[in-house]
Each structure stands twice: as C-alpha cells, then as structure tokens.
C-alpha cells in the first residue's frame, strides 16, 4: 500500500482535475485520478467525487463496479472523502431523474430543494442553491480542525441529503430547508459543498483530510 497516495475515483462524470489540483495544493504529494480498483485499493486515502445527473452517475458507478470498492473501503480504516454527488450517491435513493436507487450505504433520501423554496420570512429562494453558505458544525471532528464555526463553503446543487440517522450529521446548512452539509461515519466524511472550490476553508478541510487517521 502506498500510504501517501490519494486516489480520486474517476467514474467518467465531469472534471476531476480541480479536486486533484486542490489536493496537491493542500499538500498531497501523490494524487491519482483513476478507475482502476487495484490502484484505489493500494492508495492510503480515497476521494469519491461526483458532478452531474444522478441517473448517469449511478449507471457509471455500477458499470465500473465502484460500488463494490466503496463498500470494501468503508469496512476498513482508510479515510474516504465523498463530495457533492459522491455524497448523494451513498444514500438510499434520490428524487432526481424521476427517482433513482442509490447505493444505500447511508440510509436516507436525496430530495429536490423544491419549487417554490421559501426562507423563514416567506421569501422565495432560487434553485440551484448556488454560492457560499454557512456550515454549522454539529459536532467535533478531525475534519473540522482549524475551521471556524459557521464558515462559508461553496455549494452548487438542486437536490439535498437527509440522513435517517441524525447522529451522522457533522454539519448542516440552512437554505429554506436544513441541508445535511456533512455526514460522517467511522472512516467516511461526506460533504455536499465543494471543498476544492471553497478557497481557504476548502483547502483547510482537504489538509485535514490528508492528516486524518480515519477515526472519529
């Protein structure tokens, strides 16, 4: 195993160079973007990203048998970071594309933000939820080290996650509804926002990932 290596799982959905460059900028010496199971198994840390529509993502994840490798990784200790659609794919099902079964690794649903979506004052909110919003850290976690409470991260999504087991929620964001912005379970940390696009705070989160042992 190459402990210093970070594997970014490439299942053909969107550009993964941003994630890879941000990891390098955060100090990773060896970042590999790959769909090769052997290489993913050998890496010390794994990132499961995702951009695009859920139906196509799930089709590619299954075609490349990324679901198998994810289940295997999550039985182990190695740190795994899921980002955006990567987080959504871990849930039971999504309302996107008229309903898609997801990996059911974390029980819970991915719901449409809604139309109309209203804030507490009754004002209409635009969908997608696009821009910098505050993340309330719901508990301490090594991934939050050096990041202040309510720091803003960059979001861009129209569907949001609601985990059934609320104790898994590590961070939440208000946007008409309460969005699970970060979930964590043993060696998995999964975020709805884009750390690779969240400037200083995002790079800090990635640095934390690079030094995280995989224990909560």
């Amino acid at each position: 195993m190459s402990a210093d290596q970070v594997a970014v799982i490439d299942y053909g959905m969107g550009n993964l160079h941003s994630v890879a460059s941000a990891l390098e900028h955060a100090g990773a010496s060896d970042v590999l973007v790959t769909d090769d199971h052997k290489l993913v198994r050998e890496a010390g840390r794994v990132v499961f990203p995702g951009v695009g529509a859920m139906r196509d993502c799930m089709a590619e994840i299954k075609r490349l048998r990324c679901d198998e490798i994810l289940r295997e990784l999550l039985r182990q200790q190695r740190p795994v970071l899921a980002i955006c659609v990567g987080l959504q794919a871990l849930m039971s099902s999504s309302e996107e594309n008229n309903g898609v079964d997801c990996l059911d690794i974390i029980p819970g649903e991915v719901r449409f933000l809604g139309e109309p979506l209203l804030d507490s004052a009754g004002q209409r909110l635009k969908v997608p939820h696009m821009g910098w919003n505050r993340v309330r850290q719901q508990r301490d976690h090594p991934m939050w080290r050096g990041i202040e409470q309510d720091t803003r991260f960059y979001f861009v999504h129209s569907y949001y996650v609601q985990a059934r087991q609320r104790s898994l929620v590590a961070g939440s964001t208000e946007y008409g509804v309460s969005i699970d912005a970060a979930l964590s379970r043993s060696n998995l940390f999964a975020v709805q926002f884009h750390p690779e696009k969240s400037h200083t705070a995002g790079l800090q989160l990635l640095r934390n990932f690079l030094s995280w042992s995989g224990a909560e």
Binding site: G14, H17, S18, Y154, V156, K197, S198, L203
Partner: peptide, 29 residues
Amino acid sequence: AREVFIPLTVGGGIRKVEDIRRMLNAGAD
C-alpha cells in the same frame, strides 16, 4: 484552475456540446 480554488465560469465562442466538454475538462466549473 490549477491555482485558483474558487468557481470559474468560461464564456465566449462556445458552439457545441464538444466545446463545453473541453472547457469543463480544462477546469471550468
């Protein structure tokens, strides 16, 4: 995209799906 870690939009001269794919692959968000 290699040095700036905030979202980047690219416009101008985009004609077809292939142009979009190229820009996204180059690092546009």
